[in-house]
Simulated scan of single mutants.
Amino acid sequence: MSDLLSHADVTARTDARHWRVLLHTIHASFRTETFSRGFLLAQRITIAAEAVQHHPDLHLTYGRLRVALTSHDVHGVSERDVALAAVISHIADELGIESEVPVLGITEIAVDALDIPAVLPFWRAVFAYRDDPGSTPALEDPAGIGPSIWFQQMDAPRPQRNRIHLDVTVPHDVAEQRVADAIDAGGHVVSDQRAPSFWVLADAEGNEVCVSTWQARD
């Protein structure tokens, strides 16, 4: 069994050039410029992960390798993740590959419901998702690619506002700029009472999105 670390502790102990806490995981995005350099980085990470028997999620595209680390036994970040993150940072430095923190983020679909057990099976079926064991009630993509779906209990009908919205979890040190950019692009703040945990924003027609961070959640 791993020891669960707080988000603040993880943030303090990982390389700030590369890693950020997002939804109980730590993420890095490495700008590899070419597919072959990304494959080389992924190969080196795979060898290091096999050596310690702790495996990250890798998403390789042209010019970029996204890395996510978490310990599924504690549904969060543990010492094993912090240690492997340090090794991955060292590998990237050896290869001369830089990271790009501002592009990091995770999108979730949030469904407000009066009767969650009645609506959850519909979303499970239409997305071909499965129950998320680390977050209840919630659904996850078995392939680990699509956004997760979580359900928020409503106490009364709310016809005046949309009941499905997006949550965008971003690095804590880019959140305020992300909010400012959204406002400059025609949006407005619905509520900042829970910031920096999350800001509720809306577009010009009132469609809402939450910009979230790990802060004020531990």
Results as ranks from 00 to 15, higher is better:
190 V>S: 12
193 Q>M: 07
207 N>A: 10
35 F>Y: 15
24 H>D: 15
44 R>Y: 05
64 R>C: 02
202 A>Y: 08
183 I>Y: 07
128 A>L: 07
15 D>K: 01
7 H>K: 11
35 F>C: 10
69 L>R: 03
148 S>R: 13
163 R>P: 02
45 I>S: 07
27 H>K: 08
136 T>W: 05
218 D>S: 11
43 Q>W: 04
197 S>F: 04
52 V>P: 00
19 W>T: 02
187 G>Q: 08
115 D>Y: 07
5 L>N: 04
85 A>M: 09
11 T>C: 03
198 F>S: 04
28 A>S: 15
179 V>W: 04
155 D>A: 12
23 L>A: 14
81 D>H: 05
202 A>M: 07
159 P>F: 06
11 T>I: 00
181 D>M: 09
78 S>K: 01
112 D>W: 03
183 I>T: 11
103 V>E: 13
6 S>M: 08
33 E>V: 09
206 G>F: 05
121 P>F: 03
8 A>D: 14
46 T>S: 15
105 G>K: 11
85 A>Q: 10
92 A>H: 06
29 S>E: 02
114 L>Q: 15
47 I>W: 07
3 D>G: 14
152 Q>D: 14
20 R>S: 08
156 A>C: 05
75 H>P: 02
49 A>H: 03
62 Y>K: 09
44 R>T: 11
77 V>C: 09
196 P>A: 10
5 L>I: 02
143 A>T: 10
193 Q>T: 11
56 P>C: 11
91 I>W: 02
211 V>R: 02
154 M>V: 03
34 T>E: 12
73 D>Y: 00
82 V>T: 12
96 G>H: 06
192 D>A: 13
101 V>F: 01
119 V>L: 06
112 D>N: 14
132 D>T: 02
121 P>V: 01
88 I>C: 05
51 A>C: 08
150 W>C: 07
75 H>S: 14
209 V>D: 00
174 V>Q: 08
170 V>T: 08
98 E>H: 12
79 E>D: 15
33 E>N: 11
161 R>W: 08
203 D>P: 06
104 L>C: 09
45 I>Y: 04
76 G>W: 00
64 R>T: 00
55 H>Y: 14
75 H>L: 06
165 H>E: 04
